[in-house]
Design a protein around this nucleic acid. Structure first.
Lengths: 334, 334
DNA sequence: CTGAAAGCGCTTACAG
DNA sequence: CTGAAAGCGCTTACAG
């Protein structure tokens, strides 16, 4: 029926029951005769009925909308790339929609405005250390799930994350297997959980293998290129550079090539995040596939459980997969 | 006051008026005595009153949510890149939020499911020709605004787009000014408005300048590289390649370099979309900045007007800006 | 197992 | 200029 959308009254009338019963059936509350239930379900399906999220929220306090807060610096030329977040967002939307929840894209507004967003809970991606937005949301009584943890909130266990220790070790083992012995970690100066976790894992791994740990930090592409040039021109130049941010790794590969080195042979290069840019590079760049789809889906499920007042298992660790490619083959490529 | 938030009744009681009057004052409706207005405003301020968006929505029948549908192939390795869409999404969310609307990220579901999304209207980015999703949404009575038009719906004027004719001509004039005379258009085989518009503009411009128009199509990065190699090895090799998709342009530049050509001198390369990848390339790649922020903001405003039942001015053309960089400098670079 | 009724917090004709 | 009342579309005690 074109025109206005079906309401619970329409469904009730069509099924020959009261709105109360329709509500019970649709929400799995109370006991309803199986036959009645079927009739209601059929009528609802027939009418294409969808409970108004707004009315629902007003009556029992839920919007059935989950907020998604992406990093604020997205869109700039910093080391954060898009691929991961776009996929997280797409997976979150699909997962939520499957159970009639929806994902609201939250803008970057001040904390006060954030307390009034019409959602049941919020997913914060890559929070900063002591992220103020999380404080504001929690103060407003909204459950919060983070994708990768907030380094300043070690107590907050509602998060979804890669096991950076494990992923980093797998990558380093791979480099080691390809012959690398002087592996430099070229990371970014930001207090993010994944960078910190990766760095710790790297240092531990180096100690275990009695190899010198060398960590260099750079933020902009130019400084990454400069750092790479400096490393390669120095004494004991590295035979491998592991750069967690994918944009860094691409720049490292280019800088190495400009110095006449063959990436994948003379210098191994690897990224801590996978992306089309890494895959399409020449040579393709070995990367850790952190599985953004799984992150997005898990974050939604975790948040839904919290909204429902459950005590879900958390944190949720997402297995990462190493994607070995030409940039770490260890023998001449191209 | 801790505990529950103040309602309009609390304000009414404090100001000694009815909830109706409070509502009038707060929404600027009807006529209210100045003194009464002041009292209400003072009471509202005193109580820290903020109207519940949910109740507000329920009473006047709108969800105040706008759906956003991103291209389905996002996340793959096709020619579509993320930058543009991420920025469109961020700008849309910010614009909507400024007036208490919100942006819902719509998943890629079948058309039937799409008709039931809890939104007042939908923004569809880069629709395919005769996009079935648009039909489903319109059939459900939802207003639709597209970002770039649907080639199969020349009648649908509710869209926001770059003036591809103008942008393309500016770019070609720039290449011409840098000395290019054999400009090839290396595009993708997809029925998208911007690719079609760019191609038509290119052909027209070539005819006007009595230059031969050469159009090559390629979809995957490999085929772009192969096409570039073929062009450069052929008779009358191009002195400039214009690739609308930004991922194409990067591959073209790489393939040219592999053949020993200096990009920006021996071969000029330009992209039809700007992105961090283009900016950070070596040499930086000249691109058309289509201004995704303006697209996102304009789409939201247009959709809001339609939802409000207005007859807004449409379509909305967003001015593009040429970003000349090293890849088209026309003299030796690097 | 089922339904009548109150209520969530606002807006808006409508009547004074 | 102001207010009583109905209504937005649901949910949920409560009573049968």
């Amino acid at each position: 029926v074109p025109g206005r959308a079906a309401t619970i009254y329409d469904v009730a009338r069509a099924a020959g029951v009261s709105p109360t019963t329709v509500s019970h059936v649709l929400n799995g509350k109370g006991r309803v005769h199986a036959a009645t239930r079927e009739r209601v379900l059929a009528a609802a399906r027939e009418l294409g009925f969808r409970a108004s999220p707004v009315a629902r929220r007003l009556s029992h306090g839920r919007t059935r909308a989950l907020g998604l807060l992406l990093p604020g610096d997205i869109g700039g030329d910093t080391f954060a790339s898009y691929d991961f977040y776009v996929r997280v967002a797409a997976a979150a939307a699909a997962t939520a929609f499957a159970v009639e929840d929806s994902v609201l894209l939250l803008p970057h507004v001040d904390d006060m405005a954030l307390r009034r967003v019409p959602v049941d809970g919020v997913i914060v991606t890559d929070p900063e250390e002591h992220d103020a937005r999380i404080g504001a949301l929690l103060a407003a009584g909204l459950p919060v799930v983070t994708i990768d943890r907030d380094l300043g909130r070690p107590d907050q266990r509602w998060f979804v994350a890669t096991d950076h220790e494990r992923a980093t070790r797998a990558l380093l083992d791979h480099l080691h297997g390809a012959g690398a012995r002087r592996i430099v970690l070229l990371t970014a100066p930001a207090r993010l959980s994944w960078l910190a976790g990766t760095r710790e894992a790297y240092e531990r791994w180096c100690a275990e293998h009695r190899l010198a740990a060398r960590v260099v930090e750079a933020r902009s592409p130019d400084s990454v290129a400069a750092a790479t040039a400096r490393l390669l021109a120095g004494v004991e130049p590295p035979d491998a550079i592991f750069s967690p941010p994918e944009r860094h790794a691409v720049v490292v590969a280019r800088a190495a090539r400009e110095r006449g080195l063959r990436v994948g042979a003379d210098l191994l290069v690897a990224s801590g995040v996978d992306s089309p840019e890494a895959r399409l590079h020449d040579p393709p760049i070995t990367a850790i596939d952190q599985d953004p789809d799984a992150h997005g889906a898990a974050a939604v499920r975790l948040l839904q459980a919290l909204v429902a007042g459950e005590q879900p298992d958390a944190p949720v660790w997402i297995p990462a997969a190493l994607r070995p490619r030409g940039s770490t083959s260890g023998r001449p490529v191209g």
